[in-house]
Structure formats: C-alpha cells, structure tokens
C-alpha cells in the first residue's frame, strides 16, 4: 500500500480558512450540513440504543422485559442479588481477567515482533510464508478444534489457562496488522540507532516500541476484546466450573429451563464492562494506532 504525500501545511490551512469564511451563509452548504448532522445522529442513536436497552433491562423484572417495557424499573438490586447468588462472580471475573490480560500481553509481544520482522527484514522465503499465513487466516476455528484438543490432552494441559491462551498468542491478523503499521515506521530512526551501536532487539524494544505506542494501544483493544469474548475454544477446553470465564457462564444462563432475563441482562452488562473500560481508556491512542495501520 502506498504512502500518501506529505501535507503542504500552509497552503492547506489557508485554503480551509478561506473555505470556512465562505461556508457560512450559503443555503446549500447549510442544508448539507444539517443533513450530515441528521445522518450522524441517526447512526449514533442506532449504535447506542441497544446499550441503553440493556441497561434499562437490568432494572426490570424478567416478566416486564418480556412485555417489552422500555422504562427504568426497580428490580436492579434483585437482579444483581440473583446473579451473585447463582454465579461465583469473583472467580469467573478472575478467570476472564487472567486469560484476557496474559493473552493480550503475550499476543502483543510475539505477534508484533513477527509483524515488525516481516516488514523490516524482507526476504523471498519470508514473503512466501507471509502469503501462506494470510491464506490460513480464513480457516474456521471449528475445523481445528478436534486436533487441537488431542494435542492439549496429550500434553496434560486440558482445563488450564495455558490451553486457552496458547493457541491465540500467535495471531495472524495481529501480525498482519503490525506489518502494515511498520510500513509507517521511519527507517531513519532505525539507521540512527544502528549507528549508535544498538543491537536489533534493543532497537525493537527501545526505539520501535515507544514510537509505535498508538499502534500497540489499538492492538490492545482488538486483542483484549477477542480474548475476553472468546467462546468456542474455552468452552471445550475448560472443564470445571471454577475455571470458566464470564462469557461462558453468562451464555449458559440464557438456556436455563426458566430463563431470568433481568438477571441475564445484569450479567451481560457486567461482561461488557471491562471491554468498554479498556476502550475508553485507550480510545484516543486507538484512532492514532489505526492511522498507522492503513498508511
């Protein structure tokens, strides 16, 4: 993918300043602007409404939710109490957190190293390998599950966090993402560091990593989300209740003989909270990070 030319800042700023003064007063421009606001408002409403619905749901009884009640109720504490008596929340949160955090750190380390290397040290063989990896990206996980399970069973690792985390750590998508982002990494920085006598691993750790922190922030969100929401593989490989993640537990609640909607929605809010928090913490860096990936 090609890099875009550098901006001629002064000309651009002057032009948009000019445009800014001219814009006010033009009825067509104003109409268009109004349309843009309407469009974006609708999009934002549609995007956010289900969240509102979910939060309203946590305050209503199961019966009210089924009737489609869309206003706040008073059952919030009952729902919370039911949830906490039925689910060992601390335990499942701990499991989810360990899996998601350790998984994210390891994925960042291993996959960014590989992405960096694929871009920085190009060779014919490595290019071929990269092309092959892109093809493998498309294989549905369901197809790999049985052989994977056999491997972990032979290694006596079934029902461990290791078994959940390890297969996700080398992520082709994240390698791909870091390779794209590395294209924007100024090679002069590397050359300068080499002249200063830094070894390759030092360049990666002390130069590349700090410069690319936005890219890492964006990747953190993507990987954390994927790990936190991972369903199929943890379902198969985690056997005992005390090792299960919040995603598995909440999902099972929905298929009880007598599903308690209020309690389930309380659980889904709880299960969504950590990814939301991570997103809001890293949000500014996230957009910058995505920017790097598409240059």
């Amino acid at each position: 993918m090609t890099a875009t030319p550098m901006t001629t800042t002064d000309a651009g700023a002057a032009a948009s300043a000019q445009a800014g003064t001219r814009r006010s007063g033009n009825p067509f421009a104003m109409l268009r602007r109004a349309l843009v606001y309407v469009l974006l408002s609708i999009a934002a409403f549609v995007s956010v409404f289900p969240f509102f619905w979910m939060i309203v749901g946590t305050t209503n009884t199961s019966a009210d939710i089924i009737r489609g009640k869309a206003s706040f109720g008073s059952a919030f504490f009952d729902n919370a109490a039911t949830f906490f008596t039925q689910v060992d929340a601390l335990r499942v949160f701990w499991n989810s957190a360990v899996i998601a955090i350790v998984g994210t750190v390891l994925t960042l380390a291993i996959s960014s190293l590989a992405g960096y290397s694929f871009e920085m040290f190009r060779s014919k063989v490595r290019e071929r390998i990269f092309a092959l990896l892109l093809l493998l990206l498309s294989i549905p996980f369901a197809a790999l599950m049985v052989p994977l399970f056999v491997m972990f069973a032979q290694a006596k690792l079934v029902n461990t966090y290791v078994a959940v985390i390890l297969p996700t750590v080398a992520s082709i998508f994240i390698i791909f993402y870091f390779r794209q982002a590395t294209k924007a990494f100024p090679s002069e920085l590397r050359d300068a560091a080499k002249i200063d006598g830094l070894k390759e691993w030092q360049i990666f750790l002390y130069v590349y990593l700090p410069v690319m922190r936005s890219t890492y922030a964006a990747a953190t969100i993507i990987i954390f989300m994927a790990n936190w929401n991972n369903y199929l593989w943890p379902l198969i490989v985690l056997q005992t209740a005390e090792n299960k993640t919040i995603t598995l537990i909440v999902s099972a609640l929905t298929s009880a003989y007598t599903p308690d909607y209020g309690m389930i929605l309380f659980g889904t809010v709880l299960a969504t909270l950590p990814t939301l928090i991570i997103f809001f913490l890293l949000q500014r860096r996230f957009v910058e990070g995505m920017l790097g990936a598409v240059k």
Binding site: S47, V48, N229, V269, F279
Partner: peptide
C-alpha cells in the same frame, strides 16, 4: 458509532 464493536458477543 464505534461502540457496537466493543460489545461482548453474548450481550
């Protein structure tokens, strides 16, 4: 507009 992709699958 970005928010939906942060929701958990189950939610």
């Amino acid at each position: 507009i970005f928010l939906p992709c942060v929701t958990s699958l189950i939610a």
